[in-house]
């Protein structure tokens, strides 16, 4: 089996160290780069499965690295590291094809879970679907069948297929909310609204989770969806 390498790209030494330490127990082959230029050079030298990429770096910033990486090595999965409260740039990065993002500061377990999830994502996508619409439909169907892990996977696939539409972000939010991950859910509702401020389901979900209004979870219009009630066991 190919070694699953992780490249850590951050100009701050303490972040590189924290990430490296956090990933130690996963027994992944980690390497690090202090700026965008070094990262691209290392990515040319050898294969990495995942890149943890800081957006804000002197010289070539993370967004530019992401752009070039997506053009040259689209199979490499990129996890964006952003500062607290910079959701817009994270959304921008998702549009460019980043696999996921995490906000600083992060707990070691959060990083491990995210990297594991991103690495396993390919394996999890059991049902065949390719287009954004197919993934959205499957995500909704899985929600109605209470297959929440599969639903989450399809919602994420939909986001990767087309990160300019709000519905998939809203679905992801719904799933995270049901798993009790309210803050992450709100992150996705906000992402949906950043793409389309008039998208009502996300607006309603965000208002409800922030305690402004009450009401049921809204997965949006379409077949196979409807009200998703009940607690999700994480």
């Amino acid at each position: 089996m190919e070694t699953r390498g992780v490249l850590i790209v951050d100009d701050e030494k303490n972040i590189r160290l924290t990430l490296r330490r956090a990933l130690e127990s996963l027994r992944l082959d980690t390497d690090s780069a202090v700026n965008g230029e070094e990262a691209l050079a290392k990515l040319q030298e050898r294969r990495f499965s995942v890149v943890l990429l800081d957006l804000k770096m002197p010289g070539m910033d993370g967004m530019e690295v992401l752009r070039r990486l997506r053009a040259a090595r689209p199979e490499v999965k990129v996890i964006i590291i952003t500062a607290h409260g910079t959701i817009e740039s994270a959304v921008e990065a998702m549009k460019l094809g980043a696999a996921d993002f995490i906000q600083k500061p992060f707990a070691p377990k959060e990083i491990r879970d995210l990297v594991t999830k991103v690495l396993d994502r390919d394996k999890l996508a059991a049902e065949k679907a390719e287009s954004y619409e197919e993934h959205v439909e499957l995500a909704k169907r899985c929600i109605s069948q209470r297959q929440f892990d599969a639903a989450e996977e399809h919602a994420r696939q939909a986001v990767s297929a087309d990160a300019t539409k709000p519905e998939a972000f809203n679905l992801l939010g719904v799933l995270l909310e049901m798993a009790g991950r309210k803050l992450e859910a709100q992150k996705n509702y906000r992402a949906a609204l950043a793409l389309d401020p008039t998208y009502r389901p996300a607006n309603e979900n965000l208002s409800r989770t922030t305690g402004l209004t009450s009401g049921g979870i809204s997965v949006g219009a379409g077949t196979g969806g409807g009200e998703a009630g009940g607690e999700r066991t994480p």
Binding site: K13, N14, L17, T18, R21, H84, K104, P105
Partner: peptide
């Protein structure tokens, strides 16, 4: 400033 140079955590 009281944190050592080896401190690798976050500051908020």
């Amino acid at each position: 400033a009281a944190l050592s140079p080896e401190y690798s955590g976050f500051r908020v």
